[in-house]
Structures are given as C-alpha cells and as structure tokens.
C-alpha cells in the first residue's frame, strides 16, 4: 500500500518509492539517505505532534511532516 510518509503510524516500516517536488529540501533529504528503495521506520513524533523522528540508513533523523508529505512510501509491515 502506498502513502506519503507523514501518513504512516509510529512503529510502521516502509520502503521509499520516490520523492516528489524538486528543490533544495529534496536535495538535502537525498544526501541524508532518504532515497528511493531505502527502508524507513517512524520512531515517534515530537511532543507537539511535529516533527517526526525516523530510522533511516541505520540512524535517527528528524524531519517535519510537511516535508514528509513529499516522500511516497510503500508500507512493509505493521
């Protein structure tokens, strides 16, 4: 099932399909390892609901929900 990264629940794991929308943000995300085919797990969201904490390429990265919207993922398991 495909959805955007911000729609995934805490603890869910997915595989990145693609990053829509070009620009500096996407470039930064790519360099940090948010690439097509990479596996990503949602660890938690911050106390106020935003940003998210992700597990990607074996490390923890935090991004905002608004940027997570440009990341299309395929959910792997619950």
């Amino acid at each position: 099932m495909e959805m955007t990264l911000d729609q995934m629940e805490v603890g869910q794991k997915g595989r990145i399909v693609k990053l829509v929308k070009q620009g500096a943000t996407r470039k930064a995300l790519l360099e940090m390892g948010i690439l097509p085919n990479a596996e990503v797990t949602i660890i938690r969201s911050a106390p106020l609901g935003d940003p998210l904490e992700l597990l990607i390429q074996g490390y923890h990265l935090s991004i905002r929900k608004v940027d997570a919207q440009m990341i299309i993922v395929e959910v792997l398991d619950k």
Binding site: Y59, H60, I63, R64, D67
Partner: peptide, 8 residues
C-alpha cells in the same frame, strides 16, 4: 526552512 536534523 525545512527541519532536517540528525538525532545522534
């Protein structure tokens, strides 16, 4: 600007 930060 976007918030893209490692949590080391």
């Amino acid at each position: 600007s976007p918030f893209i930060m490692e949590l080391p």
